[in-house]
């Protein structure tokens, strides 16, 4: 039986929606090809958490745990994944499109001489030849890519497949890999991490402000709106360049690429670089004074008006809605 191996990255011992999506996706490929869906986890993850992955169609979960793997050492992690693929004889390997996947999947690709497609947008269109759709030019076109090697690696774009349940009986197995001490060559000397904040890449709703916000001091109503909606806050490039908001909030081509269910572009004109980072959002709401602003080309709902005036009204309207629903 052929096998699909899914690498599920954990976050402090827990899995997130992005993991459930790639397991759903890998399990669907397995179904279509008569293969078995296996998940590999690296790090200290409780069995209960590992078992959760069976809900989305995994029939086996391989768990590798080693004290040397507390920090991300790309060479070591990639080596464990490559060993698992080889030991299992998997032909298809699935990753998310997270920062960690960007660091690991290409290494696995070289180790296994396996062609890789990053940011795939759906299921393979054909198995022979093995052809996968992906976005190119930041959404200005789509392409079908054929992977010619015997082993194939797909990194799935977040929110492009969705989560599907297909509960399976699951076995949790300890995976053993041989990793030499000499590949641990980077040292993490400090970690700084915000807690309790909704992260941009996890957010279902994002409230984002642009130059129309006119200054760092005007962000309070935007944050209020985000609070009410349980949303993350973001901004356009000029805003982070001006220092009104941190760089980590910059959404757009050179910042973060996001794909939430709902994206509010408030006082953002929608330069092509910004739209490149948000065009995968399911629904976009734009507020801008200029009715010709390019953001309205991409938006689903629009309000022409000064965001300074419209935003407080939005805060009230959504607060009312939330109190009633």
């Amino acid at each position: 039986m052929s096998k699909v191996l899914i690498y599920a990255e954990n976050f402090d011992g827990k899995f997130k929606k992005a993991n459930f999506e790639i397991v759903s996706y890998g399990a669907e490929i397995a179904r279509q090809t008569g293969a078995e869906a296996i998940v590999l986890s690296i790090g200290n993850v409780p069995d209960e958490e590992l078992k959760q992955l069976s809900v989305y169609g995994a029939s086996r979960v391989l768990s590798f745990n080693d004290g040397r793997f507390d920090a991300l050492e790309n060479q070591a992690y990639a080596s464990v994944i490559a060993q698992a693929v080889e030991k299992e004889g998997a032909e298809i390997v699935v990753f998310s499109n997270s920062n960690t996947s960007k660091a690991l999947a290409p290494r696995v690709s070289v180790k296994l001489k396996a062609g890789m497609v990053f940011a795939a947008t759906g299921l393979p269109k054909s198995i022979d030849p093995f052809m996968v759709p992906k976005k190119v030019f930041h959404g200005k076109a789509f392409a079908d890519v054929v992977i010619k090697s015997p082993i194939k690696i797909i990194c799935l774009s977040q929110n492009s497949f969705g989560i599907t349940e297909d509960a399976k009986a699951v076995s949790i197995e300890t995976f053993v890999a041989e990793i030499d001490d000499t590949v641990f060559k980077t040292r993490v000397t400090n970690v700084e991490k915000a807690t309790g904040k909704i992260l941009l890449n996890d957010a279902e709703i994002i409230v984002s402000g642009g130059r129309g916000m006119k200054g760092a001091e005007n962000w309070k109503p935007l944050e209020d709106l985000a609070d009410i909606l349980g949303a993350a806050t973001a901004c356009s490039r000029p805003v982070s360049d001006e220092g009104w908001r941190p760089h980590s909030e910059h959404v757009g081509q050179t910042g973060k690429i996001v794909a939430p269910n709902l994206y509010f572009a408030l006082g953002i004109s929608g330069a092509i670089q910004h739209l490149a980072g948000v065009s995968s959002s399911k629904v976009i709401v734009a507020v801008n004074t200029d009715h010709e602003a390019p953001v309205f080309q991409e938006a689903d709902y629009g309000i022409i008006g000064d965001v300074q005036k419209v935003l407080p009204q939005m805060v009230e309207a959504f607060r009312k809605f939330k109190s009633e629903n």
Partner: peptide, 8 residues
């Protein structure tokens, strides 16, 4: 290892 074959 890969080839772009078609665009949309």
């Amino acid at each position: 290892l890969t080839e772009f074959v078609k665009y949309e």
